[in-house]
Design a protein around this nucleic acid. Structure first.
Length: 109
DNA sequence: GTGCTGACACAGG
DNA sequence: ACCTGTGCCAGCA
C-alpha cells in the first residue's frame, strides 16, 4: 500500500465529514485546515487520492464541480438533493445554501 | 536551480 | 457565460 502525505490524509478526512447534500470549496478546506497550503494543493490531493471520498462534494468557490466530472457529480447532487442553481451544463451548486463548514476538531486541543 | 503545469481564487473585460 | 491575467503553492522534467 502506498503511504500518503499528512496533508492529503487531513484533506480526505475533512471531505469524508461533509454531509450528504452539502459541499465545500477547495479554498474552504484549505482555510479550515489552516495549514500553509492553498486551494491548489487541496485540488491536487483530490486529483490523486480523491478516489475514496465523496469528491463531488468538493467544488470550486463558484459552485461548479470538478472539471471532467460534472456529469457524475450532477447525478450525485440529484440523488442527495443538493441545492442546484443550474441542473444543466454548466452545472452549478447553490453555494449559498449548500456550503457547509465543518465544526472544529473534536479532539486535538 | 529553472520553467511549466495543475480537480484554485479573484478581479477585470 | 466566457476568457485573460495575477497571486499562490507544490510536483515534476
Amino acid at each position: 500500500m502506498s503511504e500518503m502525505p499528512e496533508f492529503a490524509s487531513q484533506v480526505l478526512d475533512v471531505v469524508d465529514t461533509i454531509p450528504s447534500g452539502c459541499v465545500m470549496s477547495y479554498g474552504d478546506i484549505a482555510e479550515f485546515l489552516a495549514l500553509g497550503r492553498g486551494p491548489r494543493q487541496v485540488g491536487r490531493v483530490m486529483a490523486v487520492y480523491g478516489g475514496g471520498v465523496p469528491w463531488w462534494r468538493v467544488i470550486h468557490s463558484d459552485g461548479t464541480p470538478a472539471p471532467g466530472h460534472d456529469e457524475s457529480a450532477l447525478r450525485h447532487y440529484l440523488a442527495e438533493g443538493t441545492p442546484l442553481r443550474s441542473a444543466r451544463p454548466p452545472v452549478r451548486v447553490d453555494m449559498r445554501r449548500a456550503r457547509w463548514i465543518p465544526s472544529p476538531s473534536p479532539k486535538i486541543v
